[in-house]
Structures are given as structure tokens and as C-alpha cells.
Design a protein around this nucleic acid. Sequence first.
DNA 1: ATTTTGTCTACCAAATCTATAGATTATATG
DNA 2: CATATAATCTATAGATTTGGTAGACAAAAT
Lengths: 148, 148
Amino acid sequence: MLSNKAKYGIKAVLYLAQFEGEPVQIAAIAETQNMPKKFLDAILLELRNAGILRSKKGKGGGYTLALPARKITIGQIVRALDGPLAPIACASRNAFRPCDDCTSVDLCEVRAVMLEVRDAIAAVLDHTSVDDLRHRRHQVEPLLIYDI
Amino acid sequence: MLSNKAKYGIKAVLYLAQFEGEPVQIAAIAETQNMPKKFLDAILLELRNAGILRSKKGKGGGYTLALPARKITIGQIVRALDGPLAPIACASRNAFRPCDDCTSVDLCEVRAVMLEVRDAIAAVLDHTSVDDLRHRRHQVEPLLIYDI
DNA sequence: ATTTTGTCTACCAAATCTATAGATTATATG
DNA sequence: CATATAATCTATAGATTTGGTAGACAAAAT
């Protein structure tokens, strides 16, 4: 599940990517992107602490990307704000934690599928950069094509 | 995110699949599978209402699969218990709902990636049946292979 | 020194998750 | 019919997470 926090975070980074290097203030992002300013405060701070953004205080300050847009993946942003991508902790590759009720981690069928799911999610999010997303054709295909 | 509810639900269905047609009582599932009985009560009821399980009251009663195990997918179970697979409502194909803060659904980049994610998740869960999972070799590959 | 802008600490309301308790209803069997 | 069995329904409740808000503080530019 993608929280509002992560959604705002992605949108904010996407917005920042438009201003190569030039600092943008929180207030400007909040207004143009339609997000609560104070909430965005905390989000941008987390992204800064994760090394995705850079900040500058005082007049003329604001936030910028800490890396080129093609080096920042959506996966990094989501992980920084929502934690591991895996649907369940025992299926996480970077933050594994066994279930309390599980007798055998290795034989758990639920874990087996959820590992596949986590890999499928990571395959998408870790291979989509902010730059990719910005230049993507987002033509929405008719829903019927995908309904099985 | 997979809730405990859905995890218990999958495990319970998997367990039921071992007893072709023969009713199994909630208490028996709860004990052998290490789940809170009363919680499981509610879960099995939901799965019954979703047409995945069948129940029989009274002596000799219990729960059975309502369909052959190869006709029940993990996707069905998860949807019945946790709702839509999509990470965000605007990216759901069966339960679409636009975001409050979104100005243009069609042009939203977040939605575009999340649609891909939802398809990736569904591809796994809708193509894995209870039967598949039961007979799967669940050898766990070394984690390193998948770390990119 | 003052203004601007990010940073930090605390707090809070609402929703969701994870159950639990207890009464009730249907079914099989003697 | 009486009884035991097992699912079902209703109600409630604690814990955690989500989605914020308020206000003081710190750094930088002018």
C-alpha cells in the first residue's frame, strides 16, 4: 500500500526535477502540488535524511535533488517514506523479519508467493527513475485490454 | 501490505485443501495453524461469503473448499480479505477511485507507475492457485542472487 | 539585526488492525 | 424431542498507523 506520504513525496521529487539545481521552497511545492505544507515539511526532511534531497536554509534557500533525476528511483523514494517494499516482513530482502506465528520460515508457502510479489514490485519501482517517469508517455490504455 | 487477516486466510485455505471435501472445524485449523480461533471465525466467514469456502453447521460440520484447489487463486483470497490489490485506489482496475488531490487522473505519473505495480502484483497472485502453492518446491534461493 | 526558510519536538484525531466475549442459530444424532 | 456440536452474529475494545497541526528554534542571507 502506498501511503499519502509516499504519494506526496514522489510528486514533490518529480516537481523538483523540473528545476535543475535551483532551490524550490516547501511552500511553493505545497501550493502548486496541492499538499498540506506542514506534512510536506516532514516528508521532505525524511527524503533529505535519506540522501535523496538536499536543503538550503535562509533566503534563496529551499530543496533540490541531491542526485541527477535518472539516478533517483521511485523505489528509493517509497522505501525512504513507507519502508520495505515487501507485502510482509518475512518476504523482505533488505529488512527480513520472521513472522511470530510461523513455524518454518523456509517452508512457508505464504512467504514463497510474497517473495515473488515483492520481486515483482521491486522490478517495477527500482527500474523506474524520476527521469523516466517525467518523460514517459502516460497514455492510459483502455482498461479492457488488461482485464483477464 | 498483507494483513495478518489475509495471511491467516491463505494458510487456512491451504490447510483445508489437504482434506478434499471433508469438513474441518475452525478449532482444528486454529490449533494446528497457530491462529486465534475467534479471529479465524470472522476470516472464514468472509471467505465463505466470497464463495471461496463452504460451511456446514452442527456435528460433523466445518469448512470445506467451495471449489477445486486449482480454481482458487491467492489473488481471490487476498482480495476477499484485504480488498483491491492495487497499491493506491486510483491504480485499481476493479475498484478504481480517483485521488482527492489529483488534478488530472490521466496525466498523473504516480498513477502510471502504480498501475504497472498493480499489474505486476496481480500477475503473480492471479496466476498462483492454492493447488500450485501446495505442490510447489519452496526451496529458498540464496538472497544474494536477487540483490541488484 | 532582521527576514527568510528549513528543522525539531510535541501533540492529536481518526481510521484501521487485531482481536475477544457472549449470545444465537442450525444441524446431526440418540 | 432433547442434547451436543459447531458455525454465525453482534458488540466492543486495545494497539498501532496514518495524516496531520502548532509552535519554538536554528541557520543563512542581506
